[in-house]
Simulated assay, not measured.
Amino acid sequence: MKLLIDMNLSPRWVDLLINAGFEAVHWSSLGAYNALDSEIMAYAKANDYIVLTHDLDFSAILAATHGEKPSVVQIRADDVHPSVIGKQVIAALQQMSTDLADGALLTVDTSRTRVRLLPLLSKPLNNS
Rank of each mutant, 00 (worst) to 15 (best):
Q94C: 07
D99N: 14
M41L: 14
L4F: 10
V80F: 07
L118R: 01
D102G: 12
V115K: 14
S38T: 15
A104Y: 01
E39S: 15
P124K: 07
Y33G: 00
L118D: 01
M7T: 10
H66W: 00
A32W: 04
S59C: 10
L105M: 09
I40S: 01
S10Q: 10
E23W: 03
P11W: 06
N47Y: 08
K87M: 05
M96H: 15
I90W: 02
P124R: 10
V25C: 02
T53I: 09
N127D: 06
L118I: 05
V25N: 00
P70W: 01
H26T: 03
K69E: 09
Q94V: 04
N126W: 09
Q94G: 11
D78Q: 13
H81G: 12
V73T: 03
V51C: 02
I75P: 07
T98P: 01
I18W: 01
L4C: 08
D6G: 05
A42G: 11
A42P: 09
E68T: 12
V14F: 04
L3G: 05
L106K: 02
T98Q: 15
L120M: 14
P70D: 02
D109C: 11
K2D: 03
I40M: 13
D102F: 05
A20K: 10
A63Q: 06
N34F: 03
R114C: 04
Y33W: 04
V72H: 07
Q95H: 11
L36W: 01
H66M: 06
A101R: 08
S128W: 10
T107S: 05
S29E: 07
N127T: 14
Y49C: 00
E68Q: 12
G31A: 04
Q95V: 03
S97V: 14
A32E: 09
D79M: 07
P70L: 02
R112P: 00
S71T: 04
E23A: 11
V89F: 13
N126R: 11
D57I: 05
F22M: 09
E39T: 15
K69D: 02
D6T: 12
L56C: 02
S10Y: 13
G86Q: 10
A91N: 14
L125D: 06
M1S: 10
G31T: 02
M7G: 03
T107V: 13
L4D: 02
K69Y: 08
A91G: 07
L121R: 12
L100C: 12
M7V: 14
A63V: 00
L117Q: 12
